[in-house]
């Protein structure tokens, strides 16, 4: 039997208040397994504000600082500056933010942190909407998805615009390391986090983070949905280091996107023609990624 490489230490403790099947909770668990206890994490307004449980308790085994929704990038720059100025040794600075707090309202602070070459890790857990406020669309919501602000019905067919390419935006800043990870592939997840931990400079993670109530699927399906997302190419797993792309999971031919879309209520209004268009886009994006890997 293959030996498990994931550290046994649990830095997300039981008693947190995530919904059943919450992938953002799993994402934090795996992230901290990879980074270890000498991590200070800054978290903006998002589901994780609540998941960590109210004062005077905390679900994390590490030090946590709350920050406003839009300033995670600046917060980790400040923590790093203080750690360096005060000579605090061996500390990992982590920003852990939602897609809304990263791709929309916090994009400026993220860009600033990357451009300043802050020695810290920024992780965006992407549940593809503003979930904490009740499933409103974000820039990271995919084309066609139902949310409370992209309704389905007369005159509206879910989100009319495609998802923002956050990895593309981040990579334009030439970070030391950037990778996509998915809690459905925990070994790949933790391996990348450990790799990032031992680097110095700005590092970024795009975390796939299914949300049962927001995506409208049964809460025991999060791992399965995550697997399908990667296996059909909607969320490919790759890393970029020094400009070199490396796809870390290539499971042969891509599975059809239908298997992923049809498992979620938020896409249930999409017809064959919609899914054909999505399939064409996903295939094109995948081919582009494969090309980038061979060219870099």
């Amino acid at each position: 039997m293959a030996k498990l490489t994931i550290p046994a230490q649990e830095l997300l403790r039981s008693g947190h208040s995530a919904c059943p099947g919450c992938a953002p909770a799993l994402a934090m668990r795996l992230m901290l397994k990879g980074l270890g206890p000498r991590t200070i994490v800054s978290i903006p307004a998002c589901c994780w504000t609540v998941i960590d449980t109210p004062y005077p308790t905390t679900a994390l085994g590490v030090a946590m600082l709350d920050n406003p929704i839009e300033s995670t990038g600046a917060s980790i720059s400040g923590l790093r500056a203080a750690a360096d100025a005060l000579g605090i040794p061996d500390v990992t600075i982590l920003g852990f933010a939602g897609d809304g707090g990263t791709a929309d309202i916090g994009l400026q602070a993220l860009s600033g942190m990357l451009e300043r070459r802050t020695n810290a890790i920024y992780a965006m857990y992407d549940n593809e909407a503003y979930m904490n406020t009740g499933v409103q669309r974000s820039g990271a919501t995919p084309l066609g998805a139902w949310t409370t602000t992209t309704p389905v019905g007369e005159g509206s067919h879910g989100k009319a615009e495609p998802k923002k390419d956050v990895m593309g935006i981040v990579l334009a800043h030439h970070p030391v390391y950037a990778a996509t990870v998915n809690p459905s592939f925990p070994e790949d997840f933790v391996k990348k986090v450990e790799k990032a931990r031992d680097l110095s400079g700005p590092r970024f993670f795009h975390i796939f983070a299914p949300c049962p109530p927001g995506w409208r699927y049964p809460s025991d399906q999060s791992i399965e949905i995550g697997k399908r997302a990667t296996d059909c190419g909607v969320f490919p797993l790759y890393e970029v280091m020094d400009g070199h792309y490396h796809i870390t999971r290539k499971g042969g031919a891509l599975k059809p996107v239908r298997e992923y879309f049809q498992a979620q209520g938020r896409f249930s209004h999409l017809g064959d023609a919609d899914l054909d268009r999505v399939q064409a886009q996903v295939t094109a994006d995948w081919n582009r990624l494969v090309r980038l890997e061979s060219e870099t």
Binding site: S71, G78, L79, A82, A85, S111, G112
Partner: peptide, 28 residues
């Protein structure tokens, strides 16, 4: 002056840098 000078992209981030640095114990 042996200080960390963080050249931020806005005043909003300037104060966030100070808030986070001060939370860790720095004089800002």
């Amino acid at each position: 002056l042996p200080a960390q000078f963080v050249k931020v992209e806005s005043e909003h981030s300037a104060l966030q840098v100070c808030v986070s640095a001060s939370s860790l114990g720095a004089r800002t």
